[in-house]
Structures are given as structure tokens and as C-alpha cells.
Amino acid sequence: MDKFSEKDIVNYVDGEMDSAERNTFEAQLLHNQELQKEVALYRNIKATLQSHVADNRADAQFKNHLASLNKQYFNKQERASAKMRSLPWNKLWYVAAILVVGLLVWAPWNKNLYQQYSNTQMVSFAERGANDRSELQKATDAFNSGDFKKAKEILMPLLNNDQQNDVLRYYLGISQVETNEVKIGRINLSKVALGYSLLKYDATFYVALSYLKEKNESACKEWLHKIPSSASNYNKAQELLKKLN
């Protein structure tokens, strides 16, 4: 064999050739520059896919670590209030004008779409038994009574012990979005949405809502469009899309 296909290259780099195949391949590789380039190209593509597409536990831990530091070091509230104080009086007309425009865009007399669609009950998957008040049950109760701050506090350590648990991650994500940690909540929700969990499209819907909460309608629509007609919440997504248009 003197011409190798892309499949051979993948098999070689991924260590899936038997020794005879590998020997032939490596003999060619030594002086075939074209082949060397192809191997380098696939190595590069693979590295990109590993870092941007595939799940990796260590990477997720690193990102969570940064997310928590970010919260500590970049705090928006302070900045916003500092800006307000420094506004001179003669600029107040602008502020008034912006408020009016903002009011028209926000249109509170229309029902707030986020609130209208963000009503989710946490389904308890804890078994009700003698010691009924398991942590999970407490989280469920807090979530369903709207105490997202408490739900978050209980869910966080549970998820830390069980990082692959998409159900915990989904409800934690929602609790974070509800308690104004929209960005971090969205990281958790998108992780579920991009994975292969049963809650994939529920999470997709919530990612969309998290953008809606930030008034980013185009991102919201983009995520709603990801929900296929086979998903159980397809109609709900379409309905919301219509309202946004």
C-alpha cells in the first residue's frame, strides 16, 4: 500500500493499527513529506476537538475554578453604582430618555416572558422513606417552594461529589439563573444541553431563558432553534419564538 487514506491516518495517530500496518505506515512516513503534513493536520484537528468538543473532567474542574474566581474578582454592582454617582446633572435628560426607551422595550405591561416560561418544578427522585429528609429531598423542597438560594446551597456539594450527575447540574443551573448568577448557571445548563442527558432539551430551553433574562433575544432564539420537533418541549419553544418575533 503506498497511498494512505484519511482513515489510515486517524487509525495511526489514535494507535489503532496492528503492528504490521504500523510498520508499513511508519516506513512511508519517514520520507513522505505529504504524509507527514497529513499526520500533523489530523493531530491538530484532534487537539482542537479534544479541547473544544469532548468532555474532560479535569477541564471542567479547571473551568469551574475560574468561574468561581471570576465572581470574586469581577463584581459588576460596584462599578454600576460608581458610574451612576459620577453622572453630571446636565446629563439627566439622557438618562430620562434612555429610561423611556428602556421602558418601551421592556414593556412591563406585557407579561415578563422570562417569568412566564421559567416555571419549573424539581421532580424528586429521592425515595421517600423513613429518613425522608435526605439532602436531595431538602433540595427538592427548597427548589419547589422557590427558595433557590437554599436549593443552590444544598445542590452544590451534592454535585461536587457526583460531577457526572446531569440532573443535579440541571437544577443547580436553574437555581443559579434564578438567583442572578446567570453566567455560571448558564455554564452548568449548557453542559447538560450539549451532553446526552434525558434533560438535554429541557436544559437547552433554560439556556435560552437565561439569555432572555439578560434581554439577549438573539441568543435566546438561537438556543430555542436547537430544540428539535421530536423534543417534548418543542411546542413550548416554538410558542416562545413566536412571541419574541
Binding site: 491538530n44 473544544h52 471570576n70 469581577f74
Partner: peptide, 24 residues
Amino acid sequence: GDEDDAGDIFQECLIDLYNQAKYK
């Protein structure tokens, strides 16, 4: 930009570096 933007950029750049270090 605002502080949120700054936080996002800061975090993204660190992740870029991490990915480059780990995979490339």
C-alpha cells in the same frame, strides 16, 4: 466594556492558554 465583559475576556483567555498548553 463593563466589568462583566472584562471578567469574560479574562476567563476566556485563561481557558485558551490552558487548552493550548494541554492539547498543543
